[in-house]
Design a protein around this nucleic acid. Structure first.
Length: 355
DNA sequence: AAGGCGGGGTC
DNA sequence: GACCCAGCCTT
């Protein structure tokens, strides 16, 4: 039988210390389930402070679930650009279409129904149900796992299936007992973000300190246990900025990435990720010898990518139909680019001004 | 069960 | 550097 979780103390702490978030319902702002759904999609593996400006811009562009459902994918990806995990944007777009088509434009209020939406897993389903509708659905995210692993003294790896089962069970028990599911679920996460942090915890300020197992046994800095992750592999990408000269300046060629894999459906300069592919020839173009522009390293979770950027002028040839678009570098606002391609574009533009 | 998927904050 | 972040999907 686990120790009693001090729900009331935690809720009291939450009322005084919670950070304002634009999607959070308050006394003067009723819950907006669409806002909650958008926020939870953005918050997957992404910190609150990072999400807030993206959320504001996204809602300004797509104020309602109907607006999002009717938007085209390029516009959605453009609003997501820079946030990462771009599959989330396409899933959220598909979820909005499903809400309009299958749920009369109302974001579902039951976790089981939410779970059927693309990009909505167990955490997001519980979060939308509890935060938007105040229903007693459990949630377990990185914060909750850390708080519970410490409070209950769970020394098994928290990403193990049996430990996860325990965590969800504890979350279920606590949220059911809380009588305020919306505040309770958010309060555990907020405690994990502000007090029960991965490092430099501030246990003296913790509303759970009197009953925390890890604090009592001195294992706070060793919990939660996690299985180690693989190191990223090093790869090199060759970026080729191909331009043609027009009366109104240079137009650069951009192509779209495939729907699967890294930076799905984002746009880029033609980029060789394998060996010495014939980038221009494959597009039906003949180019002058390329000039080096810059090199930089970009880090992702699984790769460290060395980007070598070059540019070259088109000599002849006709671009294959549907292969890409020609754009001046000062008109890329509606073309969703991932971070390294944004950086490459900025550096190509800089050399242009110097030359 | 394990790996892929971004980019930034923090120490 | 290393670790983490209001996870999800595919294989």
């Amino acid at each position: 039988m686990p120790a009693d979780f001090p729900i009331s103390k935690l809720l009291r702490w939450f009322r005084h210390h919670q950070r304002p978030m634009p999607w959070r319902p308050t006394a003067s702002r009723p819950a907006n389930p669409y806002h909650v759904l958008v926020s939870e999609a953005m918050l997957q593996q992404t910190q609150v402070a990072t999400v807030i400006p993206y959320f504001e811009r996204f809602i300004k562009s797509f104020p309602t679930v109907d607006a999002l459902a009717n938007a085209d994918e390029q516009a959605v990806l453009t609003r997501w650009q820079g946030l990462g995990y771009y599959r989330r944007a396409r899933h959220l777009h598909a979820a909005a279409k499903a809400v309009v088509k299958e749920h009369h434009g109302q974001v579902p209020d039951r976790a089981k129904t939410l779970l059927a939406l693309p990009g909505v897993g167990p955490y997001t389903a519980g979060a939308v149900a509890s935060v938007a509708y105040d229903t007693p659905e459990p949630i377990v995210d990185g914060n909750v796992a850390r708080v519970y692993a410490r409070f209950y003294g769970l020394h098994d790896a928290v990403d193990r299936p049996d430990t996860l089962k325990t965590l969800w069970s504890l979350a279920q028990t606590n949220v059911t007992a809380s009588k305020s599911p919306r505040d309770f679920n958010q309060s555990v996460m907020e405690l994990g973000a502000l007090v029960c942090t991965p490092k430099k915890t501030t246990c003296t300020a913790c509303p759970l300190k009197q009953a925390c197992k890890a604090l009592a046994e001195g294992t706070v800095d060793r919990l939660p246990v996690k299985t180690p992750k693989k190191k990223p592999t090093a790869v090199t990408h060759r970026v080729l900025a191909i331009y043609r000269q027009t009366q109104r300046g240079r137009r650069y060629l951009f192509v779209q990435r495939p729907a699967q894999g890294l930076w799905s459906r984002m746009w880029q300069f033609p980029t060789d990720e394998t060996a010495n592919a014939d980038l221009a020839g494959d597009l039906g173009l003949k180019i002058a010898p390329p000039n080096p522009v810059s090199s930089f390293t970009h880090l992702t979770t699984h790769r460290t990518v060395r980007f070598n950027v070059e540019q070259a002028r088109v000599l002849s040839g006709r671009l294959l139909p549907q292969a890409g678009v020609w754009r001046p570098l000062n008109r890329l606002v509606d073309l969703p680019l991932a971070k390294p391609q944004q950086q490459a574009a900025a550096q190509v533009a800089a050399t242009h001004y110097c030359a």
